[in-house]
Design a protein around this nucleic acid. Structure first.
Lengths: 266, 266
DNA sequence: GTATAGAGGATTGTTGAACGATTCGGCAAT
DNA sequence: ATTGCCGAATCGTTCAACAATCCTCTATAC
């Protein structure tokens, strides 16, 4: 029942809609979120190494926030799978196992290929992909290897965005953030990131020509190579097989909803 | 550097591994998680209607936990997209928009079809699917419509588990949990859930015969029908278009990492 | 010597209270 | 009907405290 339909308004509906769209821009963020933002970038840029412990007292004091707020920030990052929480032991930067690595690429392969396959008729809106490639070229020519890695990941993020699905975007964002944890075990970021730039360009070119099916093949090969290269690097590193009881929240990993017994055991 | 390699152990590694697998079972859960478990089931079973506000003081008192702990539980559920958080206004049971509905089915179609297509050679391990169908038949014959809905969702969850990817499982778990919020707008659960039981059976039968491609076609049609039926039900209901500034955390939705400006806006 | 058992210290889990900040609703003034 | 203002209610955040738990180190027994 909406009675306020024919009310007189000085503003047109169009203008109001535009304002409503800007709404999220002015939503202030809570302290916990800002703390999470800071910690997230520190983790991603490698200031906190995988496996490092983040003591509440220490970090809270350094950032000037209370333990409670810090814990809220920790929760946020735990759900992004950047931190792992062990009961009564604290927060740790996650250490990805080879299994995690394999799974990340399994997801990427599944999702990204599906996105390309679901593309409609060309031409496709590839602006974001192009800008990512351009950024990658710039970073590469100036030897900013970390930025090159970022650009590569933005390329794939943009590719997923072609599906126009916020939830898929969020999934991808999370998976790619996790992947950054893996990158820290790579000793030579240049040798790892540079070859994939040209392959991204190749995929982009193929998409520009409207050959989505071929692009999908290229992508599958890309992912497979990247995965095996990382897995190889992992084999030479002594990454302790995390048989620990660390907790990482998936969307609803702690499942077991009353009346719905997920017989997974994982 | 791991020196403790050749240490003498009375136990065999095999046994130790088995025990390690049981570890999560006995890992006590924190209070916040248990609180989240309780609230989650209340939401899913509809005790808390979509749009309802959950005041901290009130609920905290009812459950006998402090506000701080309750807030942690709230955050867990926010990340599962069951609750939405509005700054300085509190927690609300999420109200899904038609856009959310469309997106959920976009994800399902993308992921589930990809899973079926990625299946290897038959026969497939379909035990979980079969048990879900059996449970559905039981619930249907006893007119337990809510359980029937649960069984249907377990069927699709099990289907995704064929991919063997924990992250994909988690994604699906979250998306299906969201779907339950939609179901609450359906006035006649029977008419909605019952037809899909036989279609699940049909898909299962096709998979048992090893015809994954055909199963994929059936699934796509299934999802499309289900989506449009729900969308239709939405059209008749006055669901306020949530153009609000409510915050819902995806895997890392609040993106905008320092040095990595995601120019998405959504 | 090796291994078990126990004590002590450090850190986390949780609570309770407090205070400023923000939102919402109502009432008066224009 | 719109605007401006005020008060109540609730949230955001901090602080301090205590119990519970884990880790390390030492002492003891074999």
């Amino acid at each position: 029942m909406f009675f306020a339909v024919g009310f007189t308004s000085a503003m047109s509906d169009d203008v109001l809609d535009e304002l409503a769209a800007d709404r999220n821009l002015l939503s202030r963020t809570s302290t916990a979120e800002r703390v999470a933002d800071i910690l997230r970038s520190r983790i991603i840029e490698g200031a906190f190494r995988p496996g490092a412990r983040l003591p509440e007292e220490e970090i809270g004091a350094a950032l000037g926030v209370s333990r409670n707020t810090l814990r809220e920030a920790f929760r946020l990052l735990t759900h992004e799978r950047l931190l792992a929480h062990r009961l009564n032991r604290g927060m740790f930067v996650r250490v990805l196992t080879v299994e995690d690595l394999e799974d990340i690429y399994r997801v990427r392969s599944l999702v990204q290929c599906a996105v390309l396959r679901a593309l409609g008729e060309p031409p496709y809106p590839l602006a974001a992909l192009e800008s990512a490639v351009t950024a990658g070229r710039g970073a590469s020519s100036e030897a900013r290897w970390r930025d090159l890695g970022t650009a590569n990941m933005r390329f794939h993020q943009a590719m997923v965005e072609l599906a126009g699905s916020p939830r898929t975007d969020a999934l991808m964002r999370g998976v790619l953030a996790e992947l950054r944890l893996v990158f820290h075990v790579m000793d030579d970021p240049r040798r790892f990131h540079e070859p994939y730039l040209v392959r991204n360009e190749e995929i982009l070119r193929t998409l520009q020509q409207g050959e989505a099916a071929e692009a999908e093949r290229l992508l599958a090969a890309y992912l497979d190579d990247s995965r095996s290269q990382l897995a190889g690097a992992y084999a030479t590193t002594d990454v302790p097989r995390a048989r620990d009881g660390s907790t990482v929240y998936g969307s609803a990993v702690h499942g077991r909803t009353a009346g719905e017994r997920t017989a997974d055991g994982r």
